[in-house]
Amino acid sequence: MQDFEIWMFIAVFQEMLGWAIWPIAALCVAATLALGMVLLRDRRLVAPRLLRAELLGLLGGLAAVAAMFAITSSWPGDMGGPIDWLLAIGIFVAGGLGTAIAAYAVAGLFARRGTVTTPGV
């Protein structure tokens, strides 16, 4: 039964995104795996890289909310109740986290080893 419900949601997302669902899913998995690899390799979070990833995450979150408004022909003035604000926050957090994870992982993969291991940097 649980499986059935999950497949139902996947079916809806497949209809929503068409062929793009699989590249998007692959991108999400790749970013997560890359983050895991970088963390295992470095054995710590690199503060400057994290800060830059977080700043990009902020932009990513804003872009996600802006994209939702654009796609749905709406604007912030259409938010009418607390649930609307919660939804906007949810979209911001999802967009922000996704961007931050991808940004940190990509920066980590391309970082020079010396930069990573320098203490306090």
Binding site: W7, M8, A11, V12, F13, Q14, E15, M16, M68, I71, T72, S73, S74, D78, M79, G80, G81, I83, D84, L87
Partner: peptide
């Protein structure tokens, strides 16, 4: 989601969620 309240989330359901759900229903997957 209050049924008699004008909300953005309900608009998003109509704009983004309804058609893919409908199409999945046609295929017997929803």
């Amino acid at each position: 989601i209050a049924p008699l309240e004008e909300l953005w989330i309900t608009w998003i359901i109509k704009e983004v969620g309804l058609k893919p759900t409908y199409l999945a229903m046609l295929r017997g997957r929803a």
